[in-house]
Simulated scan of single mutants.
Amino acid sequence: MSIPVAFEIAKQKPPNIERATRLRCRADCGHLRGKGAQWRGELPTRETLLPHKSTPCLLSLSGTPIPPMVVLILEKVPATLRGELSRWMIEPRTGVFVGQISAMVRDRLWELAVKGAKGGGITLLWSSPTEQGFQWRTFGDSKRLLIDFEGLTLVHIAQGPAEKRSQGAEAKQRQEQEALEAGD
């Protein structure tokens, strides 16, 4: 939100651009003050936060890049791997890690997770200026598969054992019925 505002304010050439931008952002979005404060005005939209598709990441008010949000989901992996990842990211739920880390750190943590997975499944998602706002990678065995369908990410849930058993029972009943009909 602050980038487009900063450009608008820069055209006006105020004596202190940073202060003018900060005040304008507070006026447009509201500013949180203390516990229980609420936003005033409209929340920023994705279009105002990422004005150009080529923007690799957001910039702070000082112009430094803000790393993208990263989510790493682990299934059936050793506890030692989870402990190693907890040094870099928070684990709000078992096997789900969240953080804001650079692309280099993200890639190195991915390599670490792949080496330590030992038959488990790994899904990595990170914010990116794409149509859906994120990109992803998967490794190993997982119940949920991410599938790219013409640029749109879809989730396919693999059949569980109970579903396979019920389908097997239905197939067996069909075979028995066909055998009875063939015998008549």
Rank of each mutant, 00 (worst) to 15 (best):
S2L: 13
I3N: 13
P4R: 02
V5D: 08
F7T: 03
E8C: 11
A10W: 10
K11M: 08
Q12I: 09
K13P: 00
P15N: 03
P15D: 06
N16P: 01
N16S: 05
I17N: 01
I17A: 01
E18G: 06
A20F: 06
T21K: 08
T21M: 03
R26V: 00
A27N: 11
D28Q: 10
L32E: 09
G36V: 02
A37D: 12
P44S: 01
T45K: 04
T45N: 03
R46E: 02
T48W: 11
L49S: 03
L50P: 00
L50F: 15
P51K: 04
T55N: 14
T55H: 10
P56R: 07
L58G: 01
L59S: 09
L59K: 12
L59T: 06
L61I: 13
L61G: 07
S62F: 04
S62V: 08
G63K: 03
G63D: 03
P68R: 06
M69P: 13
V70Y: 05
V70H: 06
V71Q: 11
V71M: 14
V71P: 06
I73S: 14
L74G: 01
K76Y: 08
K76Q: 13
V77R: 03
A79G: 04
L81Y: 01
G83R: 11
G83S: 09
L85E: 02
L85V: 00
L85S: 02
P92W: 05
R93V: 09
T94L: 15
V96E: 14
F97C: 06
F97W: 09
F97M: 01
F97G: 05
V98E: 13
G99N: 03
I101Y: 02
A103Y: 07
V105T: 13
R108H: 11
E111D: 13
L112A: 10
G116C: 00
G116N: 09
G119N: 02
I122L: 14
T123H: 06
T123Q: 13
T123L: 07
L124D: 07
W126P: 02
S127I: 04
S128P: 00
E131K: 12
F134S: 05
F134M: 07
Q135Y: 03
S142K: 13
S142V: 10
R144Y: 15
D148K: 10
D148V: 01
F149W: 11
G151I: 04
L152K: 14
T153N: 04
T153K: 01
T153E: 04
L154K: 15
L154N: 12
I157Q: 15
G160F: 07
G160S: 12
P161A: 14
A162T: 08
E163V: 10
K164A: 10
R165T: 13
S166K: 13
Q167Y: 08
G168W: 12
A169L: 15
E170H: 11
A171T: 07
Q173I: 07
Q173N: 11
E176C: 04
A179Q: 15
L180A: 14
E181Q: 14
E181M: 13
A182S: 15
A182F: 15
A182P: 04
